[in-house]
Nucleic acid binder design. Structure first.
Length: 863
RNA sequence: GCGAGAGUGGCGGAACUGGCAGACGCGCCAGACUUAGGAUCUGGUGGGCAACCAUGGGGGUUCAACUCCCCCCUCUCGCACCA
C-alpha cells in the first residue's frame, strides 16, 4: 500500500453511473404484477431551476423508491411537470418569449438537473400538463363532470384590477392591492365555471377519518376548511310583511334568548325592509362596512362590532316576541344565510353588540346550580347548562333541548334541521392564456354547447398577443374564438377562459399509471393495480388546496366509473422547509454571504449581523443553488446532507460545514473500501458461526446497523438516524482495520470485515447511489447495486454473551457490573453486592428495594 | 381568540413501549503522519475544582421521567367575527 490511495472523484463516478442507468433503462417500471409500491413526489412547476426544496423532496422520495426496489417491491416512481401557469405568461410579457418555448426550455433544463441528482425515475412515464396529450384529458374529464352536473357556470364576484383590466387570483391580491401595479382591487361580477366540490363535502370530511397515514395537522386543516356545522334553519317573519328572515344557527337551544336580529351589510333584504326615516343612516353604514370588509388585514377582535337599526322588526317564531332588525358589520354574507339571530346572553359577539347599543340581554341557559344575572354578566355564557325562560323546555339540559326545539320548529313548519359548510364550490375559470382551454362553445341558438369528445383536444393557440391587459388573452385570438356550433353549425364562439392549474394537478398521479393511453385519461386496470399512491411526499403549503382538490377528483372520477377506490394518497409525508441564516447589514439590508466577507458589508464596511435562520428566499438572499453544491460536492453528498441534517418533517437548517461533513463521510467510506481492496476482493463475506473479540463485536454491529437502517427507513422515515448508524458502523470498521494487517483473507476478522464493508455499501445505496454503485463494482460484483437484495440481519448475531449493567443507588449511577446476558435477578444481585464501588454506597445501610430490568439496569433503594 | 406542533450542549439533532440524557454530525481542543495542512488517522469535548447540577419554568406519579399527569411561559405554523 505504498502508492497513494485513489481519490474519491465524485464527478467522474456520478456521470458514469448516470449514463449507465440511462443507457440500460435501469428504472423503467416493470409492467408485470407483483407486490406494488407507488412512490410519488409532488411534481414541480418548471420555473427553470430546481431549488433546495426540490432537492430535499426528491431525495426523500428516492431513498424510499430505491430502498423498496431492493426490498423486491414493484415500484412506480414517476416524475412530470405542472407546466401551465402565470409565470410563463409574465415571461412572455416582459421578455417576449412565447410561453410554450419558455416552458419547454425550462423543463429541459430542470430535467437535466434532476438527472444530475441521480434520481430513480422512470422517465418514460414523464408527463407535462401543458401538452395536448395531457390536457385533452383535462378537457375530457371536464366534459364528464359537466354531464353529471358537477361542472356548471354561474355569475360570481372576482378580484378585478381596473388598471391592468384583468382578473386576479386571490393570491395575487396583496393587502387589497394589485401585486403588479398597486392599484386597489375591486370586486366584479363575472360568469365563471365551477366544480361542485360541495357535493362531496360530507365524504371528503368523513374520509379524513380513514387516512391514518396522513399527518394529523393536515387532516385538521382540511376539516376546518370544509367547516361542517350542524344546526337548524329558522324563519323569523318580518312584521307587516310576507317576507321572512331565514337564519342558520348551531344553537337552537338559545332560541328563546333572541333579543334582536343581525343581517350582513350586503344582505339583499336590508334595502327592502329599512324604514324611510332610517334609510340614509343605514346606507352610509352599509357603504362603510363594505369598505371595511375589503381591508381584511385586521384581526377579528381588533374590529369594533358595529351596527345600525333598520327600523324593521321580526317575530321570534316560538315566543312571538317582536325583535329589532339590525345591520351588523360582523355578519358574513358568505356563510350560512347571511343573517344571525342574536342571543347576547350566550354569544360573545352578540353580547358585545348588545352592550354597545343598550339592547336587552335575556338568559335562557344557566350553568348547573347557578343563576346568571344579565345586569352583572361580563361575558356571554356559551357552555351547556339548564334551560330557563324557555317555556315548555325549562329545566331540560340545554344539549337535549336543542333537539326538542328543532322538533317543535319542524312540526310548526317554522324551521328545519340543516347543515352548513364553509367549503365553497371551486371556481376554475381563469382569464389567462397559459392554461387548459375550457371545452365549451357558446351558440346563439343552442346556448352552451360542450365540445364533442371527437373534437378534443381544444388546442391552445400559439399565436396570441400577450399584453397583460384586457380580459382573457384568448378573446383576441379570432381563429380560436370563431367556431361553428357542433350542434347546429351556425356561427358560434369558444369559451376563452382557461382552467385553474389546480385542475391539472388533481389527477396527474392517475395519468402516471398509463401515461400513453390514447383512449382514456388512464387505464382502469393500471390504475387499479398501482393506486392508491402508497407514499406521497410534498410541502405543507398544499395541505388544503391541492390535496383537497385531488381527493375530490378521485371521488368524482370513481363515481364516473373510471376507477374503484376512494382516496388517492394512502400515506402523506409533508416535508419541512429548507432554511438558512440570513446576513444583514444595518445600512444595506440583506446580503449574500459573499457580500459580507470577514463579517463586514462589502459596500460600507459596517459589521453585519448573522441570523436568524429563515426559509430560503431570493428576497432574503439566503438561497443556496443546488447546482453549485452538486458541482462542488456531488449529488451523493448533496442528497446525503439534506437527509442527514434533520428528520424529513422538520425544517432543515442548511450549513456548508455540514455539507462538508457529509462529503468527508463519503470519502471515509471510499477509503475504507479502496485502501483494503486487495483484502476485500480475496475475502469471502462472513455469514454465520462462532466469533469472539473484535470480530464478534463488528459482526454484531453490522447486523445491528442493518436492522436499525431497515427499520428507520420503513417504519419511521428517520433517515437522519439511519445515516448516523451507518456512520457508526463505518467508525467501527475503521477500528478493526489495524488488526487485519498482515493477516490472511480467510481469517474470521477479514471475513467479518468484508461483511461489514459490503453491508455499508448496500445500506448507503438509497442515500448515495453513485458511490455505492462504484464501490460495489470495485468489490467485484458484475451486478449493479440497484438489482441487489437489501441485506437482512441475523438476530442471533445481535445477541451478546455478556452485558454491562449500570447500577444505580437511589436513582444515581454508582457503578457497573458485567453479567451473562439474560442472567436472573439473584445472580445479578450477587454481582452487584460484591462490587467494591457499590459496596461503598451500600455499606451500613438497609437495601429497601432492588429493581432489576433484565439486561438493562439495576436500581437499589437504600436508607 | 381557536386549533396543531415544538422548546434538550456553542450549533444541527439522538434517546422506539418510562430504564446510563446528549448517539451521529458540525464546531472546538490535543496528538500522530507530514516541508506544510484547510488532507488523513487517533483521542478528548454539557456545566462545575468538587460534592453535585443539567432536557423552557413550577408541581406531581414512580425504585426510575426528555418520555406519563396538572399548572404556567415562549416560539412556529394553520384558521380567523363560521352564527
Amino acid at each position: 500500500m505504498a502508492e497513494k490511495t485513489e481519490k474519491y472523484d465524485h464527478k467522474s463516478i456520478e456521470s458514469r453511473w448516470q449514463a449507465e442507468w440511462e443507457g440500460n433503462g435501469a428504472f423503467r417500471t416493470a409492467e408485470g404484477r407483483g407486490d406494488k409500491y407507488y412512490v410519488l413526489e409532488m411534481f414541480p412547476y418548471p420555473s427553470g431551476k430546481i431549488h433546495m426544496g426540490h432537492v430535499r423532496n426528491y431525495s426523500i422520495g428516492d431513498v424510499l423508491a430505491r430502498f423498496l426496489m431492493m426490498k423486491g417491491k414493484n415500484v412506480l416512481h414517476p416524475m412530470g411537470w405542472d407546466s401551465f401557469g402565470l409565470p410563463a405568461e409574465n415571461a412572455a410579457i416582459q421578455h417576449g418569449i412565447p410561453p410554450a418555448k419558455w416552458t419547454h426550455e425550462n423543463i429541459a433544463n430542470m430535467r437535466t438537473q434532476l438527472k444530475r441528482m441521480g434520481l430513480s425515475y422512470d422517465w418514460t412515464r414523464e408527463v407535462a400538463t401543458c401538452t395536448p396529450e395531457y390536457y385533452r384529458w383535462n378537457q375530457w374529464l371536464f366534459l364528464r363532470l359537466f354531464e353529471k352536473g358537477l361542472a356548471y357556470k354561474k355569475r360570481s364576484s372576482v378580484n378585478w384590477c381596473p388598471e391592468c383590466a384583468t382578473v386576479l387570483a386571490n393570491e395575487q391580491v396583496e393587502d387589497g392591492e394589485c401585486w403588479r401595479c398597486g392599484s386597489t382591487v375591486e370586486m366584479k361580477e363575472l360568469d365563471q365555471w365551477f366544480f361542485r366540490i360541495t357535493a362531496y363535502a360530507d365524504e371528503l370530511l368523513e374520509h379524513t377519518n380513514k387516512l391514518p397515514g396522513w399527518p394529523e395537522r393536515v387532516l385538521t386543516m382540511q376539516r376546518n376548511w370544509i367547516g361542517k356545522s350542524i344546526g337548524a334553519e329558522v324563519d323569523f317573519k318580518l312584521e307587516g310583511s310576507i317576507d321572512a328572515i331565514k337564519i342558520f344557527t348551531t344553537r337552537p337551544d338559545t332560541l328563546f334568548g333572541v333579543t334582536f336580529m343581525s343581517l350582513a351589510a350586503t344582505h339583499p333584504l336590508i334595502e327592502k325592509i329599512t324604514t324611510p326615516e332610517r334609510k340614509s343612516e343605514v346606507a352610509s353604514f352599509v357603504a362603510k362596512a363594505k369598505a371595511e370588509a375589503k381591508n381584511a388585514r385586521l384581526s377579528p377582535d381588533e374590529i369594533v362590532k358595529e351596527g345600525v337599526f333598520t327600523g324593521a322588526y321580526c317575530v321570534n317564531p316560538l315566543t312571538g316576541d317582536k325583535v329589532p332588525v339590525y345591520a351588523a358589520n360582523f355578519v358574513l354574507m358568505e356563510y350560512g344565510t347571511g343573517a344571525v339571530m342574536a342571543v347576547p346572553a350566550h354569544d360573545q359577539r352578540d353580547f358585545e353588540f348588545a352592550k354597545k347599543y343598550g339592547l336587552p340581554i335575556k338568559v335562557v341557559i344557566n350553568p348547573q346550580g347557578k343563576e346568571l344575572d344579565p345586569s352583572t354578566m361580563e361575558a356571554a355564557y356559551v357552555e351547556p347548562g339548564v334551560m330557563v325562560n324557555s317555556g315548555a323546555f325549562n329545566d331540560l339540559p340545554s344539549t337535549g333541548a336543542a333537539e326538542a326545539i328543532i322538533d317543535a320548529l319542524e312540526e310548526q313548519k317554522k324551521g328545519k334541521r340543516s347543515i352548513t359548510y364553509r367549503l365553497r364550490d371551486w371556481g376554475i375559470s381563469r382569464q389567462r392564456y397559459w392554461g387548459c382551454p375550457i371545452p365549451v362553445i357558446y351558440c346563439d341558438i343552442c346556448g352552451t354547447v360542450p365540445v364533442p369528445d371527437a373534437q378534443l383536444p381544444v388546442i391552445l393557440p400559439e399565436n396570441v398577443n400577450l399584453t397583460g391587459k384586457g380580459l382573457s388573452p384568448l378573446a383576441g385570438a379570432e381563429d380560436f374564438v370563431n367556431v361553428k356550433c357542433p350542434n347546429c353549425g351556425s356561427q358560434a364562439r369558444r369559451e376563452t377562459d382557461t382552467m385553474d392549474t389546480f385542475v391539472d394537478s388533481s389527477w396527474y398521479f392517475l395519468r402516471y399509471t398509463s401515461p400513453k393511453n390514447e383512449t382514456l385519461p388512464f387505464g382502469k386496470d393500471e390504475a387499479g393495480y398501482w393506486m392508491p399512491v402508497d407514499q406521497y411526499i410534498g410541502g405543507i403549503e398544499h395541505a388544503v388546496m391541492h390535496l383537497l382538490y385531488a381527493r375530490f377528483f378521485t371521488k368524482a372520477l370513481r363515481d364516473l366509473g373510471l376507477h374503484e377506490f376512494d382516496e388517492p394518497f394512502k400515506n402523506l409525508l409533508t416535508q419541512g422547509m429548507v432554511c438558512k441564516e440570513i446576513t444583514k447589514c444595518p445600512e444595506h439590508g440583506y446580503l449574500y454571504p459573499e457580500e459580507a466577507t470577514g463579517g463586514k458589508c462589502h459596500i460600507c464596511g459596517k459589521a453585519v449581523s448573522i441570523g436568524p435562520v429563515e426559509k430560503m428566499s431570493k428576497s432574503k438572499k439566503n438561497v443556496i443553488d443546488p447546482d453549485r453544491i452538486i458541482r462542488e460536492y456531488g449529488a451523493d453528498t448533496t442528497r446525503l446532507f439534506s437527509l442527514f441534517a434533520a428528520p424529513p418533517e422538520k425544517d432543515l437548517d442548511w450549513n456548508e460545514e455540514g455539507v462538508e461533513g457529509s462529503y468527508r463521510f463519503l470519502g471515509r467510506v471510499w477509503r475504507l473500501v479502496i485502501e483494503n481492496l486487495d483484502l476485500l476482493s480475496e475475502a469471502k463475506a462472513w455469514e454465520t458461526g462462532a466469533l469472539d473479540g473484535g470480530a464478534r463485536e463488528l459482526n454484531a454491529a453490522t447486523h445491528r446497523t442493518i436492522k436499525k437502517v431497515t427499520q428507520d427507513i420503513e417504519e419511521r422515515f428517520h433517515f437522519n438516524t439511519a445515516i448516523s448508524s451507518i456512520m457508526e458502523l463505518v467508525n467501527a470498521s475503521y477500528q478493526l482495520m489495524p488488526t487485519l494487517n498482515g493477516k490472511g483473507s480467510d481469517t474470521a476478522e477479514a471475513r467479518v470485515f468484508k461483511k461489514a464493508v459490503e453491508s455499508i455499501v448496500l445500506l448507503i445505496a438509497p442515500f448515495a447511489p453513485h458511490i455505492s454503485e462504484e464501490l460495489w463494482s470495485r468489490l467485484g460484483s458484475s451486478e449493479p447495486v440497484y438489482k441487489m437484495r437489501w441485506p437482512l440481519w441475523n438476530e442471533d448475531a445481535l445477541k451478546l454473551e455478556e452485558v454491562e449493567i449500570p447500577v444505580q443507588v437511589n436513582g444515581k449511577v454508582r457503578g457497573r457490573v458485567t453479567v451473562a446476558a439474560g442472567a436472573d435477578e439473584a445472580a445479578v444481585k450477587e454481582a452487584v453486592l460484591s462490587d467494591d464501588k457499590i459496596k461503598e454506597f451500600v455499606a451500613g445501610k438497609e437495601i429497601k428495594k432492588f429493581v432489576y430490568v433484565t439486561d438493562k439496569i439495576v436500581n437499589m433503594v437504600v436508607a
